[in-house]
């Protein structure tokens, strides 16, 4: 069953088409990575799902409820904007327990307990009673995630959830999102492809407001990412160049890049091509320092699709 359904979503800002007929279904309990270059329409989609913006045409549903500014779908959603803003005069614990808990309809006792739980979860124990005005960007981001999780929402909408975090904070938040798998449907936009590769089950790639790829991560890698062989020789660059040139004529070689005595060969993806390449390298009469058959990366898929 699809938790998030988007049908024919268009959003026009003056002359700019931020979304151009977006259709998307996100299954329950998955961590969905929403990728796209700057201005692709990721934040607009998230804002529409969070009920902060209206589509020009089209509609979206969360667990069957239509989204919108006064929609009940907001009860099911935890939203983290790209740069969450808070009241600087408030304290973190107060913000979570009194404000967010109250807005989510939690009892005072429940909100206090949940706020304490969230503070520990995002690692803000020492700063829970400090004014938010003095928080760093990373601390705000963690508090933002805590407020999104306060009411145990079945759907989490996260706009660049790890931007502004240090490596430790990033790892912690990604682990946290990873642990939500199965419990909540996580819809996250990000620019950091390695993060998507690490935690996302399914990936959607958006470009110019249109969805250009949507599949499980493994399927995307299988379909779009091409294997690359990188060989380092201990030989004169001219000899290496001569050998590399001979590869260009082979039907299964897509691209050859030369850097001094290192050659990077992009293959067509067939298993036979990888086997043949291995044989060709060994038969080159050149001393091989290293041979690496690179695993296809999501970044390759992304670049191939958006460029």
């Amino acid at each position: 069953m699809s938790t998030i359904v988007i049908e024919g979503l268009c959003k026009i800002y003056g002359p700019i088409k931020a979304l151009d007929g977006l259709d998307l279904h996100v299954e329950q309990g998955v961590v969905f990575g929403f990728l796209g270059p700057n201005g692709a329409g990721k934040t607009t989609t998230l804002r529409i799902l969070a009920g902060l913006a209206r589509p020009t045409t089209g509609q979206a549903w969360i667990e069957g409820l239509p989204v919108g500014p006064e929609s009940h779908a907001r009860r099911l959603v935890g939203y983290l904007p790209e740069e969450p803003s808070f009241y600087p005069w408030m304290r973190a614990r107060e913000f979570l327990a009194d404000l967010v808990g109250g807005l989510c309809g939690m009892s005072r006792r429940e909100a206090m307990a949940r706020a304490d739980e969230m503070i520990v979860l995002v690692g803000l124990e020492k700063d829970a009673d400090r004014r938010i005005g003095g928080f760093s960007r990373g601390m705000r981001q963690r508090l933002g995630l805590a407020q999104a999780l306060m009411n145990r929402p079945p759907v989490l909408l996260l706009d660049e959830p790890v931007s502004g975090l240090d490596p430790v904070g990033r790892r912690n938040i990604l682990n946290l999102i990873d642990e939500l798998r199965g419990e909540a449907t996580v819809f996250m936009s990000t620019h950091i492809l390695s993060d998507v590769e690490r935690i996302c089950d399914a990936v959607g790639i958006l470009n110019h407001g249109r969805l250009i790829a949507l599949d499980k991560k493994e399927n995307l890698l299988r379909r779009y990412a091409v294997p690359v062989v990188e060989v380092n020789f201990d030989a004169a660059p001219e000899m290496v160049a001569h050998w590399a040139e001979s590869l260009r004529e082979l039907p299964y070689v897509v691209n050859v890049q030369l850097d001094e005595s290192a050659v990077r060969v992009t293959l067509d993806g067939s298993i036979q091509s990888s086997v043949d390449m291995q044989r060709l390298v060994l038969g080159a009469d050149l001393l091989v320092l290293s041979y690496q058959h690179e695993r296809p990366q999501l970044e390759d898929v992304f670049l191939q699709l958006v460029e």
Partner: peptide, 15 residues
């Protein structure tokens, strides 16, 4: 403009 309204109005509260 500060963005606090977005955080509040994404919660189940009417305008």
């Amino acid at each position: 403009t500060s963005g606090t309204a977005a955080l509040i109005l994404s919660k189940p509260v009417s305008r």
